[in-house]
Structures are given as structure tokens and as C-alpha cells.
Design a protein around this nucleic acid. Structure first.
Length: 364
DNA sequence: GAACCGTGGTC
DNA sequence: TGACCAAGGTT
């Protein structure tokens, strides 16, 4: 039986259209969701009014390629500090970037702020349709569909990595990614219900996060196991089929700790590129694609202060640290003296936060 | 399409 | 322990 085909024998009271296998999938999943939905801070609780679009949007952007566990504290901090989208829009760039520090993929923070300003200047209300949402900065196909469905009840087809995995298994789609995305999206469209599309999307994601995970399918507790083609084949974890990963090259670079009377010299990285727009230690120009030059920003009596290793998406960086503590004038170029005692408030991304930690640990 | 962009949890 | 992976978007 193909997806979407009418079930031969109607097992429920007649509706305006035939009951299909797709309807059964949605109904079974929603029933499971009603019992097993995770209690997450950005979700409306039963009995609550409709979810706040600002909180839905903020959570969805934070959750892009990021785990629920990592997002929770950032979501609490952002919503506490900026309760409405107009508050976030009015914040300073450096405040928003610093508040995002540690969460990664910093282009999200820039786009988040740009989106908040766009919404605020348009009256402070988020658009309600998928197409209008898609036009906002930082909102791609997934996030626009998720907000339309979850915050506004639109029937939108929400496809993230969880949905991709669950759908690929349900229908044993064995085309390798990314080519499989065409068939996966079509199948997701067929099983997405007209009503409760937002709950359906969140149910698929909860299922993918807690039951049908990448490493383990846990079919014994899956509400969709009876109709799952991958389970019938006996190899659910084999779906979706993924291409081989490329190895990450090892890169070397240097970073420089320049200190003067209890303050350290920090720079702000260019808006584009790795760690774009974030405060940082001066470095020797390393990138994900090539080693640094090894050259310090000026001639001085540089002393080695250890190194830190840090994995990025495309490279594994070993950053050696060099210190000057008797600097007198300002180093060349733009920068600011930041009190060492308050280095934790500088909003350094994790790489440089660890570098600072290493330098300060070595001074004791 | 494919490259680029972070980080922390998990096993 | 290191390899894999996560509620993707932009260029």
C-alpha cells in the first residue's frame, strides 16, 4: 500500500474524505504526543493561550543545529532580558552578540537581531504566513514552516533532521542524502494533517529526539512501529542513507594575550566568516582553510602560555597562546582594553574563553 | 549542490 | 576517547 492510498476498510466513522494510512500515522503520532510531549520552556502548556510567536521564533532559531539541552539556559536569559521582540530590537549589537556567546553559529545572532528589528519596525507583530516568515533574516524553509505551524496553526510541512530520519525510516527511503530530501519532503507532506500541524511537527521532532534517534530506533516503544517499512526490513538504523564524511584538516594558529594594568586587549572579529562579529583575542590570521602566519601584532618579548585545541565544523584548530604583560601603548589597529577580572562578561566565543582560561591558569 | 559556519552531549 | 550528531541558513 502506498502512502496516501485509501485504506480498504474504514475503521473510523466516515469523514469528509476517506481515511488513509497517512491519517492513521498522524492520528497515532498525535495520540502519542498528547501523552509523551516533552515539557519545554517555549511550549504552551495545556490550558495556556496560544504560544507566543516571539518565544517560538527565538527558540527555533536557537535550536538550529543545536541541542535542547544547550538552548535552555540561553532561552531563559534572552527572554528574561528581552521579554518582547521590540525589547530585543532595541538592544545593542554587542549586547546581543555577547549574550549569544558560547551557543555557536554566530551568524544566527546577527540574523536574529536583524529579524527583531524588521519585525519591530513593521509594527511589532510577526507575520503569520509561511511565505512572509521565510522572507525574514535567518528564517529558512524549516524555521518558517515551524513558526507558521506552531505559533499560528498553519498547515505547513516542517522538515528538520528529526523528521528527515523518521520519514526515511517510515517509508524505507534508501536514496542517499541529500538527494533523498525530495522524496522525504513529499512523504512528509502526505502525512502532515490539516489540523494540529504544529503539534504534529513537534511530535515528529520529539519522536526523533527521544525514540527514533540516529543511533537507536527503539521500535519497541515507537507509536509508528506497526507501519514502519524500515523496521519491517529489520534495519531501521540504516536509514536515512548518509554520504561519507570528509576528514577535518588540522590547523595551527596563534593568539596573543596583551595585558596592561589589569586589562587585556580585545578585538572584534569581522562580521563575516568564522566567529564573525565576536570579541576575540588578536591572532595571526588563521582560518579554517589555512594555518596562521605565526606573526605577532607587534614586536615584543612574547612568552609562551600553553595552547588549546578546539574542533570546528571544518577544521581542528590548535591555538598556541603568547603573552605580553608589560604593554605600554595601544597595539596597532582597533580594539579595547577589557578588565581581566571581568573577562567572563566579554562575550568571548568558547575558543577564546578557553584560551583566556588557559592563560589565567598559567599565571598562578 | 556544495562549502561554510560552533559547540556540547553522547556513546 | 573520538567520532558522530543536533529543531539549518546563507552564499
Amino acid at each position: 500500500m502506498k502512502v496516501g492510498d485509501p485504506v480498504p476498510l474504514c475503521r473510523r466513522p466516515c469523514h469528509s474524505r476517506a481515511v488513509t494510512a497517512s491519517d492513521d500515522i498522524a492520528a497515532g503520532l498525535l495520540a502519542w504526543y498528547d501523552r509523551h510531549a516533552r515539557d519545554l520552556p517555549w511550549r504552551a502548556r495545556p490550558g495556556d493561550p496560544a504560544p507566543d510567536p516571539y518565544r517560538v521564533w527565538l527558540s527555533e532559531v536557537m535550536l538550529q543545529q543545536t541541542t535542547v539541552a544547550a538552548v535552555k539556559s540561553y532561552f531563559a536569559a534572552f527572554t528574561s532580558r528581552w521579554p518582547r521582540v521590540t525589547d530585543l530590537a532595541a538592544a545593542g549589537d554587542d549586547e546581543v552578540m555577547a549574550a549569544w556567546a558560547g551557543l555557536g553559529y554566530y551568524a544566527r545572532a546577527r540574523n536574529l537581531h536583524a529579524c527583531a528589528r524588521a519585525v519591530a519596525s513593521a509594527g511589532g507583530e510577526f507575520p503569520r504566513t509561511e511565505a512572509e516568515l521565510r522572507a525574514l533574516p535567518g528564517l529558512g524553509a524549516y524555521t518558517a514552516a515551524a513558526i507558521a505551524a506552531i505559533a499560528f496553526g498553519e498547515r505547513a510541512v516542517v522538515v528538520d533532521a528529526n523528521v528527515e530520519r523518521v520519514v526515511a525510516r517510515l517509508f524505507a527511503i534508501d536514496t542517499p542524502l541529500p538527494a533523498a530530501r525530495i522524496a522525504i519532503r513529499a512523504a512528509a507532506d502526505r502525512i502532515t494533517p490539516e489540523r494540529r500541524a504544529g503539534d504534529f511537527a513537534q511530535a515528529m521532532m520529539d519522536l526523533g529526539a527521544t525514540v527514533c534517534t540516529a543511533r537507536s530506533a527503539r521500535c519497541l516503544v515507537c507509536p509508528l512501529a506497526a507501519g514502519c517499512a524500515a523496521r519491517a526490513r529489520g534495519t531501521p538504523e540504516a536509514f536515512p542513507v548518509k554520504p561519507a564524511k570528509k576528514p577535518r584538516p588540522a590547523r595551527r594558529g596563534r593568539a596573543f594575550w596583551i595585558e596592561r594594568s589589569g586589562a587585556v586587549w580585545l578585538v572584534t572579529r569581522p562580521a563575516r566568516g568564522m566567529l564573525g562579529g565576536m570579541r576575540a583575542l588578536p591572532d595571526d590570521g588563521w582560518t579554517a582553510g589555512r594555518d596562521g602566519s605565526g606573526e605577532p601584532p607587534f614586536a615584543a618579548d612574547w612568552r609562551p602560555a600553553g595552547q588549546v585545541s578546539h574542533g570546528f565544523t571544518h577544521a581542528e584548530l590548535t591555538l598556541s597562546l603568547w603573552v605580553v604583560t608589560d604593554q605600554v601603548g595601544d597595539p596597532p589597529g582597533q580594539g579595547e582594553w577589557w578588565p581581566v577580572a571581568r573577562i567572563g562578561e566579554a562575550g568571548l566565543p568558547t575558543l577564546f574563553a578557553r584560551a583566556a582560561e588557559r592563560v589565567l591558569a598559567g599565571k598562578k
